[in-house]
């Protein structure tokens, strides 16, 4: 289960109280702007794509330019999960646990063919992999490739930032 932060609860209460008189959309917009520009991804690699994710964070591509370079080793401190690599059937429950441990609001990027649909490891009768992350958790942005270049991951990240700034989240129409 996700975690509803005290700040969110306060906001909910405030919004309910102030609803007849005022809209707190502005506050939410400012919050979203902050969230979009300070994403903290989880240090979490699964396979090949993780190397390109590291490349995106390293010297040439430098994810810090987009405010997303603070990789956190603990899910409790992260708000972005970049699924980079093949999800085996043995690993899928672990990933779901990690996702549930991340505090809301949180977002997920599926990087590479494996996390989108099983990618090159999918064939009739396969027994080892989970065919895509969306079987067990929500995904905001898909970045196709095998593996995607760091530029592609950055493009995906910018798309996610756009989405956050527009205030869209899961569980709501828009």
């Amino acid at each position: 289960m996700g975690v509803v932060t005290p700040a969110d609860r306060e906001l909910d209460a405030l919004a309910a109280e102030a609803a007849p008189f005022a809209r707190l959309a502005m506050v939410e917009d400012v919050l979203n702007l902050a969230r979009a520009n300070s994403l903290w991804p989880l240090t979490f690699g699964l396979a090949c794509c993780a190397i390109e994710m590291m490349a995106a964070g390293a010297s040439r591509y430098d994810l810090d330019r987009f405010g997303a370079g603070v990789f956190r080793p603990s899910p409790r401190q992260a708000d972005l999960m970049i699924l980079a690599g093949t999800i085996s059937r043995k690993m899928a429950p672990v990933i779901r646990t990690l996702w549930d441990q991340m505090p809301a609001p949180k977002w997920a990027i599926s990087m590479g063919g494996c996390t989108i649909s099983g990618g090159p490891f999918k064939y009739p009768g396969e027994y080892a992999i989970s065919e895509g992350a969306e079987k067990f958790m929500p995904i905001d942005v898909h970045v196709p490739g095998c593996p995607p270049r760091p530029e592609a991951l950055i493009a995906g990240l910018l798309k996610l930032e756009e989405k956050i700034k527009r205030g869209r989240r899961f569980g709501r129409a828009g």
Partner: peptide, 9 residues
């Protein structure tokens, strides 16, 4: 945790 069945493939 990263078994991808290369040998079966």
């Amino acid at each position: 945790y990263s078994h991808r069945a290369h040998e079966k493939m």
